[in-house]
Amino acid sequence: MKYLTMLSPAETLLVLRRETTTLNELLKVTLWDLLYKSVLQTLQVSRQPSPQDPPCTFIYIVKGEYFDTYKPLPHEGVFLYPFPTNNGIEILFRHLVKIAYQNAGSRQKFLHLVSQSEQMKTCFSQTKLQKIFGGYSITANGLALEKDLAKELAELEARLPSLLESGKEKVLEIYRQIKGNMLLIQGIESTSLGGLDKQLWEEVQQEQNMPLPASCSGTFSSFDSYSESFDSSCGGDSNGGDSGGDGC
């Protein structure tokens, strides 16, 4: 396992699924990776606005332990720009997702950002026309990397069931190495893995101080409860009525 430990999950997606990867997927794995690396972290706060109101849980994203020393990749900036100038700022998860969508601009622009990292520069090229109208071509280096990455992922996916049977420590070790790329392993969300994925998820949460909403089941798929915002952000501005029932 060499390349999965070197590349961010968005870079892996770019190399493996160039045409089919969505902005939603790319942003989701990027945020997850930043959370896993403790560049950002989640903060769950329960507040009771007044004695008459029930307590309400808010999930914020705040700077993580390694924020100040981390050297971000170009595409990771969409999540990190709102933090440096506002020391100690807490941003509601759903708002940060919306900010990331706005900063990303479009799938095409975000893919371009992903392709600008040192690791990716030799994997993609652009002709003059592609620079004007968008698009890129994969180079021989990129094709070789694609092959190696696919092989590494396939090997991991094949080994995963037996690794899980032999104990979670080995799987956790792999997680520590490949960080956000773990989301790209097909078997990890499979229900056939029984309850082990839940235990693993809880371990990762404990290690990385990543609390989840109380209503979440605690499995890997529960990341989707966070990322519903990713799905709704695209058209989120238009939903909901303006003034509810008060006629304002």
């Binding site: 309400c56 919306k98 009525g241």
Partner: peptide
């Protein structure tokens, strides 16, 4: 730490302010 946004609302205070 006063929160103007209701995280359960489809359109929060800040969403509306932005729009």
């Amino acid at each position: 730490t006063f929160e103007l946004d209701d995280p359960t609302a489809p359109l929060t205070f800040t969403d509306r302010l932005a729009r």
